[in-house]
Design a protein around this nucleic acid. Structure first.
Lengths: 201, 201, 201, 201
DNA sequence: GATGAATGAGTTTTCATTCAT
DNA sequence: GATGAATGAAAACTCATTCAT
């Protein structure tokens, strides 16, 4: 927490590629991918276009990098939570809350994730979707486990439950404001609670 | 319902403005607003650029029209449902399910709605957001009514519950496929059920 | 002949597409296709880039148009000459001389033809090559006719004779100068004569 | 001849400058000078840009080197042939055939020679043209000698005869295929024969 | 009402070359 | 000898919009 003040890491005098990525993330979140020009990115990062293309093959690569970073982070956190030996409802609650906190803490990435995915090149899009699906499946497995063991209601297909919850995660970037009344953890607890309550038998 | 076969209304030989709007809706949903050129729209509609600019002041106007149509439709349906004198849980269930069905039946509009809102000009954006807020408030009022009368749990702020549910509605355009296993009504029933179950005291 | 002074037709205030084509032809011949920028073309033609792309789909299209014009002209002249009922050696001599005169009279086109063919897009390249082949075959048929009837020597395959002659035509753009000692017709007569002498039995 | 298998000399692990030159020759012939980037050359040669600029002052230098190599080779072969004391028609036949064989054996160089000459810097262009002219003059001297001594017809200026023959040599890179029906020597014999037949008094 | 030629500022990307290490 | 990061100018092409007809 000490070093982190207002600007995202890597904005000041970090190595060029990191600086470019940090700046691009901010701009993509602010104005959208298509409305952010390469020119704006390099100006904000204080380098030339040549430098950008030295490190990234295309504007699309920059976007993909944002996704890769996010996917890596989320998969790794979910794996950690799901592997604990707590009861399944606690594992699900932890996972559901954790993805909310992580999303809020990286709200720029999240906004880009949900809004600009279809602007990736088709092949990169496929790749991201595949990784995303793996993530969803891990999450769904928790719900199915609870349904099998009678802890959760089977009234709703697990698939749909997953989409229900991730819809609300997705939506966070639309309404959550850091200066609002609730801390990330409070929001996370509420949303996880809603999920668990909906699953009561 | 009778007339709806395969093509969206207004594609064939409807009056020019409707035809333009229908074509633009499809293209915006398919490739995104920024990636759809005015040229593509007029070609697909079989008219010239001059004709488009005769009826619409700008490309942005076309997008705004999509929003206006959707907002009008949803507000009107919610008003109808909320005004009934059924018990509050039934009114909420009906409203929650109805917005799902309506969204699925206008999935192109919905996709555009959630994905391209920030591409509206600032003033139109504000206008749309304001109408959207009114809609949410109406919906929230139902939840608050249930909470006041003890029918719904007060564990979660009504605000958050609304966002929870609309997150899942928003998300529909990401995963719902017409050729999937569930009909729009079945999805709607499940999602409304999840909401009501989460609200059980 | 009256109107033709120094500038190629269509340079002054001809319709925009013709003007663009005339200017592009000159520049492509002067500096080569790759070294001629679209910017230079539109500046020389006194229009904007948008106008160019209104009429031509790409820079490549402009190049293709030069080829199409040249191919049309040559094929039509060869057809006329070959269809006469003069003895075969006279028809061959006329064809051989005519292609030289035509080439010299359109030396810019010819230079582009031989130097920039491989810079066409692959599909257009194939198309041009196919038309070119038809032309060569028509020419070869004359030689084969003479060989069959004993007028020409059969020492050399007709194929090779065609390539021999067209090599020299191709080469014209490398060495011929309008201010040199020989008129186009004189050069044509000499080259046709060399061909006919080489074919004496 | 013994060592020549499939790859051009200097491709495998020859010293860096030779490797660069071999790779550049292949790429220039394949895609043309302007369409070959320095990056592609160094990648194909397995070295870095720095290395290239260590040995060659510019991309243009690389092209010039191809020309210098070709010109050295041809001049030296013509000198050898022309210096023999055989009758002039035999010397001319030998020279005419030899340049064909040499060109076919170095078809990449030949293609670059005729197609990319005007892409040299002006000063190098002049230099190459001057050497080329010397070569042509040596060749023309043979024809003039034959004309003076009555062995060759004087119907055509010697100049034009030279251009006629070199046109066909130039043209080889356009049509000759190693897997075609004729060996290089057969092609050479035919073309030399055509030249000699055309020169019969 | 409607056309389509034309604009001009914009887009992403490429590239030969340099230079501190 | 050799590296590879960085430059800066230029490349082809796109696009929403306007306007004389």
């Amino acid at each position: 927490m000490a070093a982190r003040t207002t600007e995202p890491a890597g904005t000041h005098d970090a190595p060029v590629p990191q600086r470019l990525l940090a700046v691009a993330t901010r701009l993509f979140a602010e104005r959208g991918y298509d409305r952010t020009s390469v020119q704006e990115i390099v100006e904000a990062a204080g380098v030339t276009k040549g430098a950008l293309y030295h490190y990234f093959g295309s504007k699309d690569d920059l976007l993909h990098e944002v996704y890769a970073r996010m996917l890596r982070l989320q998969q790794q956190r979910l794996d950690a939570v799901a592997a604990s030996d707590a009861p399944v409802e606690e594992r699900l609650r932890a996972a559901a809350a954790d993805v909310v906190v992580t999303t809020i803490e990286n709200l720029d990435d999240a906004m880009i994730f949900f809004r600009s995915m279809h602007q990736l090149s088709p092949e990169k899009f496929k790749q991201v979707r595949a990784e995303r699906r793996r993530y969803h499946e891990r999450f769904r497995a928790l719900i199915e486990e609870g349904q099998r063991t009678g802890v959760f209601s089977t009234a709703t297909p697990a698939d749909l439950v997953v989409d229900y919850h991730f819809g609300s995660v997705h939506h966070l970037s639309t309404w959550y404001r850091a200066d609002g009344p609730l801390t990330p953890q409070q929001v996370a607890d509420h949303l996880a609670d809603l999920l668990l309550r909906a699953l009561r038998p």
